[in-house]
Amino acid sequence: MASKPKANKSKPAARPTPKPLCSTPPRIKPSLPAVVANDPRRARAILNSQGKWLNGTVLHYCFFKTGHFAVSKKQADAVRAAFAEWKAVGIGLVFQEVTQMSEAEVRIGYSEPDGSSASAVGRDVLHIPANEPTTIYGWDLTTPYGRGTALHELGHVLGMEHEHQNPFAGIKWHEEAVYTSLGKPPNSWTRATTFRNILEKLDPSQVQGSSWDPDSIMEYEFEPGLIDEPEQYDVNGLVPPGKLSKADKEWVLKWYPPLAAQPPTLEPFKSVSVSLAAGQQVNYLFKPTESRKYTIATTGATDTLMGLFEEVNGVARFLASDDDSGEDRNAQIAYKLFAGRRYHVRLRLYNPGQTGITSLMVS
């Protein structure tokens, strides 16, 4: 009997057609006072938390209906499905569609002629002019690749960065090959755009954990010949599955865990103390018995973000916030509250200081 021919194990993988990639705008880099910048632990804690939303925030989103960024129903439905998939992980954030741009923190546009998808990262969306999109899609979101893109851009909205820019990834690039590939269609990027979105390493304070997740929804697809190390990606390219990975879900649940059904209640002139680690959050309910201006304030040598929300028809609507991170003061909100209504006070700790103890009081 004739022997079977041996398989050619050295045959290279088929070269995939280059995909259009997400091009994020330059990040807003906070300016930290020298006393903070010279304290690496404090600076890292602030930078790692500052772009994240307060858990429990209702993120309102709206689609452009007319003009250059008009979103068709088919594409809008794909984005709605992506919001639902992130929410199904069990996170405490709420996503609510609205019809008025002025009501939306997240304003979604679509433009195939532009040929690029992009989104501001986390709370950076708050710095985008109200008549401009914060998140733009540039290709069909109903394909398998497009569905992954819809999830990817919303990952940016939640505060996630590009995974291949993780400084712990250990990726070594064929840099000129990267510039050449991304300089051609369908991306046609400048060298500066390629560097910002591919080759530039994130500051360690911008990433979670100390390992790389090649299956992350925040990972790009790369053709063979762009990655020098790890070697398997040089030969075969890197093709992530285009869905939420286990690590993606762990990340989003760390920052936005499910909210307690009955948060503890604050009482006027009664201080409460909490011990939190960097990035953790505590939530309280306040039910005023008289209508007047109240002051809600923290004490302690910590860096925090505090937010005040009013419960309207079961939904917590944002009223005010104060971020004292990097400053020699404590967070404080003064606001007129009304008897018989329900308010939520949420406090995220950036840096725990020496003790990790933060006190909170309504007066």
Rank of each mutant, 00 (worst) to 15 (best):
A14W: 01
R123Q: 12
D328K: 13
P257W: 06
T135L: 10
H164P: 02
S102I: 03
Q75L: 10
V36C: 02
K6N: 07
L182P: 01
T355V: 10
G340R: 13
K336G: 05
K172A: 02
T149N: 15
D324F: 01
T194C: 02
A13N: 07
Q232G: 03
H174G: 00
G146H: 14
T66S: 09
P288L: 00
T143I: 14
F64L: 11
L253A: 01
L285G: 01
K172C: 02
D248V: 00
P40Y: 07
L253H: 00
E221C: 13
A45N: 15
G183H: 07
I296L: 08
L199C: 10
I28K: 04
L93T: 07
N187A: 05
Q232N: 13
A339G: 09
L266F: 01
V98S: 05
F168P: 00
R27P: 03
V121S: 04
G148N: 13
N131D: 15
P230G: 04
P133Y: 13
K4H: 07
V71Y: 08
D114N: 08
G146Q: 12
V89T: 14
P16M: 02
R196T: 09
A130V: 13
K87W: 08
P268C: 00
P258V: 02
A316R: 14
A339E: 14
L337H: 07
A130N: 09
I198P: 03
T299G: 04
V36N: 04
M160L: 14
T134D: 10
A247Y: 06
K52N: 08
P240C: 07
V252P: 08
A37D: 11
P224R: 13
S211C: 06
S181D: 07
T299Q: 03
R348K: 08
A7C: 06
R44W: 04
P26F: 02
N283H: 02
E112H: 05
A261E: 03
G115K: 02
N313R: 06
P16V: 06
S10C: 03
L349K: 05
T358M: 09
V235H: 07
I217S: 11
S359M: 02
T298P: 04
K287E: 08
L21H: 10
N55Y: 13
A76R: 09
R80H: 09
V272G: 00
T57N: 13
K254V: 01
P129Y: 04
G279N: 01
L126P: 05
H68A: 10
L141Q: 10
H344R: 14
K9I: 02
A334T: 11
P167Y: 04
Y350H: 12
K249A: 05
K243P: 00
S119R: 02
M1N: 10
W53P: 05
T304V: 15
Y233R: 10
V252N: 06
Y220I: 15
F63I: 12
K201W: 09
M218K: 08
H127S: 13
K249D: 02
R123G: 06
L238Q: 10
A150H: 15
V282M: 01
Q332T: 11
Q165L: 01
R348T: 15
I227G: 11
V79Q: 08
R44P: 09
E229Y: 10
P240E: 12
M361F: 12
V239S: 12
A88E: 13
H164Y: 06
A82W: 15
G155E: 12
A81C: 05
S181R: 07
K336D: 11
